[in-house]
Amino acid sequence: MQQDRNGLPPAEWCATPNAMRLNRLMRMARRDALMGGLGLSVAGLFSSAQAQTAQTAAQSGEVGRFMAVSERLTDRTTLDSRIGTALYVGIVHANPDRQAKIQALATLLENSKPTSAAEFARAAEHEDPSLKEVIHDILAGWYRGVADGKVVVYRSALMFDITKDAVYPKTYATGGPFYWVSKPPEVARPTGKPALTPSPFVIEPT
């Protein structure tokens, strides 16, 4: 094993001074990394403080309750708890008040036992209008794969799961040249109604 100089990885101390500086500047932070690999430990995604938060949350059952809330809000029976742990830590890190709000959602879920995401979401907003923003955070986490302004998962975001018969996540096309000429699936106009009151749609600036 190569010697660790001043705690720097070999890629940095083996390089020229300019390359060292570039390595640090051009590389995105470690916690921005994808969680793609199956064997990757959740702790590897976080700073030590966040890893501690994740461990504490898991031990106290917070993550379990977050997973139950997530499954109800997505109308799904299986979600990946490793992704869930990372999302939970990110959501709470971005907004510490989310910890109590998520537990409030969990309590509502346990008490009222809603049979659909829509029923649950309506009841939550009725009980406390501020819970809408937490629900948005949770849905953006699972469907977009982001929390705390960072990518937690890319290809594993649910939005790609539900559109995989038509499009690929950018940079991961596997259809081969000219796959795009073929006719993609038709999509019927949905009949479902919004469960929450609408919010302003803000496109992030480029």
Partner: peptide, 10 residues
């Protein structure tokens, strides 16, 4: 999400 959809409807 901004329109207020959740679950299957989303």
């Amino acid at each position: 999400i901004s329109k207020g959809y959740v679950g299957k409807d989303l």
